[in-house]
Computed example of a mutant assay.
Amino acid sequence: MIFGELDITITRCQRKTVSIFVERDGSVSARVPEEITKEELTAVLQSKEYQIHKNLAEWTQLNAQKIERDYVNGQSFLYLGRNYRLQLTNDEFKGIKLKSGYFIISKINKTKAKTYFIDFYKEKLREKLKPILNRYKGQLGVEPQDVKVMELQHRWASCTSKGNLNFHWKCAMAPIDVLNYIVAHELVHIIHPNHTKAFWNDLDKIIPNYDKQLQWLKLNGAGMDL
């Protein structure tokens, strides 16, 4: 939907209110009630126009921190909130090693470095998710149907209407406290599909400092890339 100078992606779903998001790539999306008319939606967007442009300005400022990484000696890469430098070695082996504070890749396989990093993050994230999920799903009394680590484009994680949880492999770059927040956030969505007051109240019960973790993602999310 074109609104002024903005191209807004509209998703209709079972909800009562309109929620507008500035995605991590700077695009704008909105989740809206299934029955809302074009005229009603336009009126809502007009009432939120100032906030949308304010959020876009904030996105532009935060993304000034985006890092263009090259797969060369000394380049830093995030893992669990800490930077590790890349070291290319003459030793021949497949994949990536994390040893003595360095990510190590064989020079002969340098062209496959990005794939190796993604595989590394996926594997490590699956390991880290298990105990976190077990802890918080017990506290909330919920049970996700399925849990996947995958490419999610512009979202850190998602919860489907069937209770399936999906996590972006880039979540492995975040500190454990932030990862705890991401997991808890999606588990609470099994109870509350939308970001209602009840949603935030339940999240606050298990992650009392979630504002701090959310702020970390806002400030550092642009740098969580390959």
Results as ranks from 00 to 15, higher is better:
139 Q>I: 09
143 E>R: 06
65 Q>G: 03
56 L>A: 08
108 I>Y: 11
207 I>W: 02
25 D>F: 02
112 K>Y: 11
211 D>A: 09
15 R>V: 11
204 D>V: 04
84 Y>L: 06
66 K>N: 06
87 Q>S: 14
198 A>E: 09
83 N>G: 08
95 G>S: 06
25 D>R: 00
172 A>R: 09
184 A>W: 00
26 G>K: 00
139 Q>M: 15
191 I>H: 05
27 S>F: 04
47 S>A: 15
149 V>C: 04
8 I>V: 04
210 Y>P: 12
48 K>S: 12
48 K>T: 08
194 N>C: 10
34 E>S: 09
112 K>R: 14
180 N>I: 01
132 I>P: 10
202 D>M: 09
204 D>G: 13
156 W>I: 09
16 K>V: 06
142 V>F: 07
75 Q>Y: 07
144 P>Q: 02
69 R>G: 03
164 N>A: 07
11 T>E: 12
95 G>A: 04
59 W>S: 08
97 K>E: 14
96 I>Y: 00
81 G>E: 08
139 Q>R: 11
115 T>D: 14
212 K>M: 10
3 F>P: 09
32 V>R: 02
97 K>L: 14
168 H>E: 04
184 A>D: 03
10 I>W: 12
52 I>V: 14
52 I>L: 06
173 M>T: 12
224 M>C: 14
63 N>V: 02
